[in-house]
């Protein structure tokens, strides 16, 4: 669930999760969130809180920017 008119936050969560061999259920269990939250995050329908973004990044040993891509950054790069 994205705030209406809010910025789009793309992410590589599904790709990184699959590479790590986790199911959505496993990831939800480790992050202490519901499986629906993981599914919504992967589909880009929900922007995580900064705390959850940190938890995800730490779990995979990556930086937040590695996983979550702020759309404006992509526009700036192009």
């Amino acid at each position: 669930m994205r705030e209406r008119g809010g910025p789009l936050l793309r992410n590589r969560l599904e790709e990184i999760r699959r590479k790590s061999g986790f199911t959505q259920e496993d990831l939800a269990e480790k992050l202490q969130v519901s499986r629906q939250t993981i599914s919504s995050l992967e589909k880009g329908r929900y922007n995580p809180s900064i705390i959850l973004a940190f938890k995800i990044a730490r779990l995979f040993g990556r930086s937040i920017e590695d996983i979550f891509i702020y759309e404006a950054d992509v526009d700036d790069e192009n």
Binding site: M1, A28, Q32, V33, S34, Q36, T37, S40, Y46, P48, S49, I51, L52
Partner: peptide
């Protein structure tokens, strides 16, 4: 407990 505290559920509830 997780469902009740889940941040997406809490956000949806508040909306």
């Amino acid at each position: 407990e997780i469902e009740a505290q889940d941040e997406r559920n809490v956000t949806i509830n508040n909306y």
